[in-house]
Design a protein around this nucleic acid. Sequence first.
DNA 1: CAGGGGGTTAGACAAAGTCTAGTTCCCATT
DNA 2: AATGGGAACTAGACTTTGTCTAACCCCCTG
Lengths: 146, 146
Amino acid sequence: MSRGPENLRLLPREQALEMLEQHGIAPTEQRTEIARLLFGRHQHLSAEQILAQLSTSSARVSKATVYNTLNLFAETGLVREVVIDSTKRFYDSNPDPHHHLFHTDTGRLEDVAPARVQIGELPGLPASMEVLGVDVVIRVGPRRDS
Amino acid sequence: MSRGPENLRLLPREQALEMLEQHGIAPTEQRTEIARLLFGRHQHLSAEQILAQLSTSSARVSKATVYNTLNLFAETGLVREVVIDSTKRFYDSNPDPHHHLFHTDTGRLEDVAPARVQIGELPGLPASMEVLGVDVVIRVGPRRDS
DNA sequence: CAGGGGGTTAGACAAAGTCTAGTTCCCATT
DNA sequence: AATGGGAACTAGACTTTGTCTAACCCCCTG
Ligand SMILES: [Mn+2]
Ligand SMILES: [Mn+2]
Ligand SMILES: [Zn+2]
Ligand SMILES: [Zn+2]
């Protein structure tokens, strides 16, 4: 289930700083490097993958900081946390609303345009509660001949 | 996050055996006890909760067997595995198609009628692939005043 | 120069789940 | 009756993912 380097790409430092700025996050060196890596493209990375990538690069970031930073990014809405594989959390760099196709054979996660899924109104939800998000995951896999 | 006994109820042994039978699962004592507990009502239990319940009852079942059995139940489609909190898997005894409301404050999972969730055609899905299921999770929580 | 707060770090720790090796049980064959 | 084999169960070691703790660094401010 561990996919390759996937053609690494880094967001220009300039833009990473801007993203942190807009979410009220103090722009430290480590946070900037994590943002540059994660937002270099639309992708779904686990903390483990980010940690591995950073450890090869010149920018060394500790495990604790990777986890702290990703939690911070998620809390402030900078990144979207996606839970599917029960053994791992993924961080989604695609900021637009969308859903996911989960390939059970490869463990890969693919984006799906939200237009393809329509959700009706929700029944009575207490006024004190609010909808924080709607996650739609379409699981696909090799046809199991019945 | 650990909720109480929740008014324990057991499925009659007769019916548990029938369920196992219908899914081609050999009816051992342990599997039967787990089925009786899980299917005693519509609910969402973690392996941990099942293990805890069984350890108090007269039927003693080991950790390995609880996990093995739940995996077996999920593979054969007897039970539905629901992943939300990445640190725990839930096993859903409600066999009917439905979606979930996840209360982020309590960690509780609530069933939602499958209402209108329409999936459009998925482009570029190879003929060798099939949709295994669609999971919709609506995350709700206390209104965070902004 | 002293104090304080935010941030980072290594490594200890915790929790969920898997794996291993030994055992029990059942049934079929001799 | 004895033997053999396979399926299932078990305790406990182990792995993986993520959190916590305590020390440290750095910068700012008084
Ligand atoms: Mn945003
Ligand atoms: Mn079924
Ligand atoms: Zn995505
Ligand atoms: Zn349910």
